[in-house]
Nucleic acid binder design. Structure first.
Lengths: 339, 339
DNA sequence: TTGTACGCGTTATCAA
DNA sequence: TTGATAACGCGTACAA
């Protein structure tokens, strides 16, 4: 029973005293096999513990039933819940999901590409942002792919993401509706694409509310907790202060809140803060963070749906699906008070 | 150049006007091929963009160069840094790493097992704790495997983990050395193995310090932030209070700190708190959390080393490697004051 | 130094 | 209803 080598279809055939063709049929098209034969085969399968060798199968079929997900950073709090959406959808269609961790290293991306190219995965899901493999390989032969979160620069790979601009606009509008007129944006809207889009939502909302340019404040920050802290420090070198902070993401918001608290301010009485992402920790902040929630599971589901669809019927037109995120109201935003 | 089908070794052979055997040799044993031939082959490879089909290769060789990592919860903050240790080590030996996310579902584990059984991965790294595939399949034919963090129940799979007991003892001893005599342990030392081990470290330290049983306090908590909060709530229904909390992990510590803060206590003046794990957020807590740091990268490296070793020379003896974690002193522990 | 041919475990086509 | 066999892409023993 517990031989060293896994049982092959041939072992089963021998034991059931049929040909390997019959075994294969008994598995894939049971109705084409006589009941008695089928029973013998099933018995033999049970005895040998046979499992079809997926590799040989894929080699023969020219397609595997695995989807490769390429992620630059497994630790990203967004990633794991998106992944679950992905996996459930894949599973419902009989596909498995394998994850490749690129650590933001194009070299590693390339290695996984080889894995793909040898047909060990039927499709590719890219979380890697706009240049997954360095620019050289943009021309490479990619299997059916879908980009998540960030489109792949210069390619026609379909893309599923969040409507950052609309989400950010929601955030800004909520701040405005709460009575704020002097709102600082914290983020790197010079170089980071996602930040740029969110900044745009901020501008759109403030334009609509006819807030003059000179009342707007844009603070630099690359998106880390530390960057939020720093932004606050820099701010106090100016003479005017905003009444609210709109942060490009929750990490930045954490930094801003810490920075403000360190200066002895009482939140949300003295300042309002809103984030973006809704990371798990947002609830446990003090005050609990009002933010824009990434529709993570929905993104995962949509992306996988799109990929499986592409797999079934390869289409040439570039598609782009943007999902609208929701405002989550907690305690970090109130009406502006007087300090 | 950009045909729809990936180039095969045959395409290369035709273009270079040699046999496929020569192409194969030019790749794997270049010294056995005439220089001029080799050049023609290399040129042909460049032109066709040929990549060897890893699947066919593995099918032929009976071994792949991929390691499968099975993880129950990708989102676990411990996981990602361990993974990096793993990957670097694997890479140094020419292996790639693929991750399977089981979501704690034995069914999914079984699916990945099929992947393995068909030889698509040479080895297996189990993060899944003691019953990866439900108890039925304990007898299953597993490829060379190493368990990380938790041993696999009833198997002889080598295991690399943290010395929980020694680490917890360090924590308790630090509390004792800081002057605490009344220390509460928060965790589920009834059912969770890891918790049991950490509890043991607590007991050992308190035994050595001759703290009588009636001065010890054990609070239930399954290890979540919420469970820490709850433990604090329950505590205040008693008449005696400890001066320090030793939490089974950092999440619990966060809950304890929040719970205490919610009751208006000032930390660390009123109570000392120590955690275990050193999650990324530990620094940003208020006060910053003193804790026991998981030697994550080291664990990853060790585990992969052990696996690759097992791959090279299969050994029967059960091995177990326990790594000692370090105490990280930050601000959440002080001498006991008077409340 | 190079080429021919077999086998890895499947699935699918064609006959029987 | 069943069986023999070609093919998927590759590595290698053996022959040339």
């Amino acid at each position: 029973m517990s031989n060293s080598q896994p049982a092959t279809i041939e072992d089963v055939a021998r034991l059931a005293e049929v040909s390997i063709a019959t075994v294969s049929r008994a598995i894939h098209t049971p109705e084409k096999v006589a009941k008695s034969t089928r029973q013998r085969v099933n018995q033999a399968i049970a005895i040998t513990g046979y499992t079809t060798n997926a590799m040989a199968r894929s080699l023969r079929m020219g397609r595997s039933n695995m989807i490769l997900v390429l992620a630059p950073d497994i630790g990203d709090p967004n990633f794991s819940s998106i992944l679950i959406g992905l996996e459930n959808e894949a599973r419902a269609h009989g596909f498995g999901v394998l994850i490749g961790h690129t650590q933001n290293d194009p070299e590693r991306g390339l290695e996984y590409l080889k894995f793909l190219n040898s047909g060990q995965a039927a499709g590719l899901l890219l979380f890697t942002g706009h240049e997954p493999f360095g620019h050289q390989v943009l021309t490479a032969r990619l299997p059916p792919s879908v980009a998540v979160f960030e489109p792949v620069f210069g390619s026609s790979i379909p893309y599923v993401g969040v409507d950052d601009t609309a989400g950010a606009r929601k955030a800004a509008e909520y701040l405005l509706a709460s009575g704020h007129r002097s709102i600082a944006f914290v983020g790197d809207s010079k170089t980071k694409l996602g930040h740029v889009r969110r900044r745009k939502g901020y501008d759109l909302a403030l334009d609509a509310a006819r807030i003059p340019q000179e009342q707007r404040m844009v603070l630099d920050g690359e998106g880390s907790i530390e960057s939020g802290r720093l932004a606050v420090e820099q701010l106090f070198m100016r003479d005017t202060l905003p009444t609210a902070f709109m942060c490009v993401n929750d990490a930045t918001a954490v930094g801003v809140i810490n920075g403000l608290a360190a200066r002895g301010y009482d939140l949300p009485r003295d300042f309002s803060v809103i984030g973006f992402d809704d990371v798990p920790q947002a609830t446990f902040l003090n005050p609990p963070l009002t933010t824009i929630r990434q529709p993570r599971t929905a993104i995962g589901k949509q992306a996988m749906e799109l990929l499986l669809e592409t797999l079934a019927t390869p289409l040439t037109e570039k598609r782009e699906i943007l999902i609208m995120p929701d405002l989550i109201v907690r305690g970090s935003v109130t009406a502006p008070g007087k300090r």
